[in-house]
Nucleic acid binder design. Sequence first.
DNA 1: CGAATATACGGAGGCGCCCTCCGTTTAACA
DNA 2: TGTTAAACGGAGGGCGCCTCCGTATATTCG
Lengths: 196, 196
Amino acid sequence: MDDAPARPMRADARRNYQRLLAAAQALVCEEGTDASLEEIARRAGLGIGTLYRHFPTREALLETLLREHFEAMRARAEQLLRAPDPLQALIGWLRTFSRGTSAYRGLADSMMAALRDETSRLHASCQGMRGAGQDLLVRAQAAGAVRPDVTTLDLFLYANAAAWAAERVPADPEVGERFLRTIIDGLRTRTDEDAS
Amino acid sequence: MDDAPARPMRADARRNYQRLLAAAQALVCEEGTDASLEEIARRAGLGIGTLYRHFPTREALLETLLREHFEAMRARAEQLLRAPDPLQALIGWLRTFSRGTSAYRGLADSMMAALRDETSRLHASCQGMRGAGQDLLVRAQAAGAVRPDVTTLDLFLYANAAAWAAERVPADPEVGERFLRTIIDGLRTRTDEDAS
DNA sequence: CGAATATACGGAGGCGCCCTCCGTTTAACA
DNA sequence: TGTTAAACGGAGGGCGCCTCCGTATATTCG
């Protein structure tokens, strides 16, 4: 669907592409999704122009960097779809998601930004994962385990908010865990009801 | 405790201070807490040096801008402390808090950053409000309405996360509201229990 | 009502980042 | 080995952060 265009990349281009990716991987891990692109090029031993030719936007670079990660999350959701307990499956996925996301500082922000920008590559790249998460949500709702008014957007927001929260209190991983638990409890169908 | 130091400000200094504050108020409303400081000075019709003399850091400027807001939140908490229902009081405060915070784009981030930096002016300025929120939390816990393992830090994190979430989906205010509801439900003591 | 002086002002300048554009280099192919 | 399309690199313009210091002025005091 996208490989092997008219001609393959020139050898130097292919090599530089990989170098950029490696440098980006390293720097994004160290400094988050707003790492300096010039620094990435510098570390790859390449000019800034080369970076921009391969990755026209920061988003494009991030997308390439995270594609596998998203795909793994999608696969994980699909697998959990066959787990016996729909609620536990959803919970497990949320945990994995938010842990994975908070591993890259700033990723939660980037993903939410991508959500609103349909033209962004990150946006497209997340769709598969979102769809899979949705399936988990719908199943849990069908089983009566999760409130029916929760939308897929909500789910995405919760998962990313948990990652956002975990990022802010890196000193205490407990906090992120508690945050997620609170959200999960809030998602569940309540026996007693009240409003306002 | 801090007014009327040795000598009062010079007349021009006082005037410029106010102009800067007004320009900052406007620009922060428009563009969020990461608005350009040079643009603020420009709009105030002053040099950048003047801005930095009055407000040595972005934090200092924000703190001055938001002091009243924080004080209002503190007062509101104190008032709610005398409301009959401890849980409803806490919920009402969280609503007000997260609505107020999401009014300034980026404020949730700034507050969480301030939380970690004890030397920051914002940090100090939030303390009163945090303390008051804590009182509300403790009362609700004492009444058995809120899980006892929730800490003040958690509360702060929840409130700010709700604001963060609301900021990301400005198109649909419903989403922010639902987010908060979920968290509130999650905070409440559950009758049935289970883990993992 | 003038100095004298402490205060305050302004913006140039150094640095880093973003992104574009185009002259130079080089891999690929015949 | 020559040709050429593809790729490289970095200069340069724009913007923002922050500091430093020469200039201007409000205030004070004789």
